[in-house]
Design a protein around this nucleic acid. Structure first.
Lengths: 236, 236
DNA sequence: ACAAAAGTGTTCGAGATACACCCATGC
DNA sequence: GCATGGGTGTATCTCGAACACTTTTGT
């Protein structure tokens, strides 16, 4: 990975990827940020992002860049928008393609930028409530990604990706409430979720809580795929 | 506008825009194609597209390029996806940003590539049924745009953009049927459309038909904007 | 026994679907 | 008078919204 500065002086046009990775932990929605270790915006917080190389597709670039800057491996991301304002990068014309993902935080906490680059000093899960002002136009990029998942979750049950493998309905509901930023009715929420028929009820309960333990559920990928197919085909 | 060939030999990375412009005429859904006049894919049909210049935003580039290649002026387009496979262009790495629009065909038939470029020999409205195999990966780009509008129309009443200013409900229904590729029930369709409350019934009827003339309607932009706002705000 | 969260049903209104006949007009 | 599309209403179902109390468990 060449340092950005060595490329900028001669570039005509460069493209980059920026990743918006959502995680959910301790009842909070978080986003993965890096602390920049190079100019411009040295010491600022930014979305993990870097230049696309000559011989890699955008999707591959996204995966590689996220890994190198944060240590997260094999994350599948979706492209959501491309940002191309002329002056979005102070050193030249950089068009950036935005990717997002929602991932399970448990067991993914060991973040460590790969030592191949000193571009990021560290990577940190940051609660949305504590979001600092970000480098470049990353505030705008983040906002667009957040709008996207908020929109998507309201017509597609995608929130499981953020939860541990086994979860309670109340945890799932809290997650929805955080993303949609409103209270939901418990009975209606449960009815609706169970109606989707994509949850498997386990013979197991929550442990270590000082109140009535809730049933645990698992997300059923097979049934989910079926539902998703149905939603993609128009008309019934 | 420099010719593509003079740029390619030395480029590291280049971005372009490709435009998917939908029109509706004589009961058929059409897309605007150009006939290429330069290599590669000389003489092939392609989506109108060209390189983004150094000092213009993506949105501006899209508008300019469409105008230069087809003569269509001031068309507002939405970005829908960015295509970055390594080998999508035979002469080097070109990442392209897809834009789409739906426009009124009546009065927009005078297509003429601007003489500043000999890149396109001509621009032609092509019925979807007659789509030839397109240059580059434009088949894929087209398909993605079409999926996008098909999806969008089923939750947002956007089809007016394709119709003449005054239209009958039957024309509107036909348009929906063509895009969704299925028959709709006349009574239910009318009920639903009128319920949106974004159509203004005119004191005017169809002329020159050899059967009972239908009422003409106009699309009410003010009310539409209101509806759109409502749909964008989550939760009620 | 008390605190805390789990779990559970019914009613209402809105909107989607299915379905068939008479009406106006031009030829 | 006939062919062609214009125009209309009702019954049913599904889904989302509103709404409150009992049960279980750990301390």
């Amino acid at each position: 990975m060449k340092a950005l500065e060595t490329i900028l002086p001669k570039f005509d046009s460069v493209f980059s990827i920026d990743c918006v990775i959502f995680g959910f932990d301790e009842g909070e929605l978080k986003v993965l940020l890096i602390e920049r270790n190079v100019e411009p915006f040295k010491d600022w917080w930014a979305l993990p992002g870097y230049l696309v190389e000559q011989e890699e597709s955008l999707d591959n670039a996204a995966e590689r860049i996220l890994y190198e800057l944060t240590g997260l491996k094999g994350i599948y991301m979706d492209q959501f928008y491309t940002f191309g304002d002329v002056n979005r990068h102070p050193q030249g014309r950089v068009i950036t393609v935005g990717y997002y993902a929602m991932i399970r935080l448990s067991g993914n906490k060991d973040l460590k930028p790969a030592p191949i680059t000193n571009y990021a000093r560290r990577a940190v899960w940051t609660p949305l409530a504590d979001l600092p002002k970000l480098a470049f136009d990353h505030d705008k990029i983040f906002k667009r990604a957040f709008d996207k998942i908020r929109n998507k979750i309201s017509y597609q049950p995608i929130a499981f990706e953020l939860l541990p493998e086994k979860f309670t309905l109340t945890q799932l509901q809290h997650l929805y409430e955080v993303i949609l930023n409103k209270k939901l009715d418990k009975r209606n929420f449960r009815k609706k979720m169970l109606n989707y028929d994509i949850l498997k009820e386990l013979d197991e309960k929550q442990k270590g809580v000082s109140y009535r333990a809730a049933k645990l559920y698992k997300f059923d990928k097979r049934k989910y795929a079926r539902l998703f197919q149905k939603e993609l085909s128009f008309g019934k």
